[in-house]
Design a protein around this nucleic acid. Structure first.
Lengths: 129, 129
DNA sequence: ACAATGACGCAACATTGTTGCATTTGTATC
DNA sequence: GATACAAATGCAACAATGTTGCGTCATTGT
């Protein structure tokens, strides 16, 4: 586990990162809480702060969604830094897609500056079809 | 005002729709409240329900955002049904972009069914540059 | 003008996330 | 290994946004 970042390698951080690494899809704060082993029961606030720290240190990324809930996913190498996401409208699961969301070929009004693109494809996953 | 939909043409609905039509950008529930004339002070809940009704009847659309706040915008003809959005990371304003977010050329895993695409470009608006 | 049904207002609640502060714990240093 | 300091944690309270239930009011078709 590479935790040579600006902070301490605490049990909570390691456990949370391990939980996210073990998961194929992006999961919510609540789902992370449920998946943590009993030996590692953390406070809600600590979990929020730990996730924030993991995001800041580039170990995970968080995904916005239309249900106002952040979902978190470990930064696997297989996915490029910028990638699109898929959300199932049936079961609300979110996965990361490989394809990059095209270059900045989006015509912005004059004077506007491009920074980042956020793309979510919605549909039904194999289970919900 | 074309309110020949499944419901009544109440002062609240007309006023809210007029407020949204007068606005170039997509605005939040709170911003709508502030812009309503003093002659039309609505309950918070009524505003939520009215916005929901306007969305269902295709007169406005709502936009998800990373700050967990819905923004609403009137359905002008100049924008196609499906369109991308731009959010300024400085002042948090959201506008609608004309370009459609490309066709469904997004490689989903096998067994997945495409429904809809949601695209937000982030950057700085002319004022915040 | 009247009745029925939809819209509204109020209160209470739900969910998600944040802040302040005291306590505990990792880590560098001795 | 012991120690001290800063960082991490836990607890309580708060904040923002949105939702539900229910009684009352008002628009609309007749």
């Amino acid at each position: 586990m590479i935790l040579h970042h600006s902070g301490r390698a605490t049990a909570g951080r390691i456990g949370i990162l391990a939980t996210l690494l073990a998961e194929q899809k992006a999961i919510t704060h609540r789902e992370i809480e449920q998946r943590l082993p009993q030996s590692l029961q953390l406070d809600r606030v600590t979990l929020y702060r730990t996730l924030e720290w993991l995001v800041e240190n580039g170990l995970i990324h968080k995904i916005t969604s239309d249900d106002r809930v952040w979902r978190y996913h470990a930064n696997h190498e297989s996915h490029s830094h910028q990638h699109a996401h898929f959300k199932c409208t049936g079961c609300a699961q979110v996965i990361c897609l490989d394809s990059l969301p095209t270059e900045q070929s989006w015509p912005l009004p004059t004077g506007y500056r491009f920074q980042e693109i956020e793309l979510t494809v919605k549909g039904l996953c194999a289970n919900c079809c």
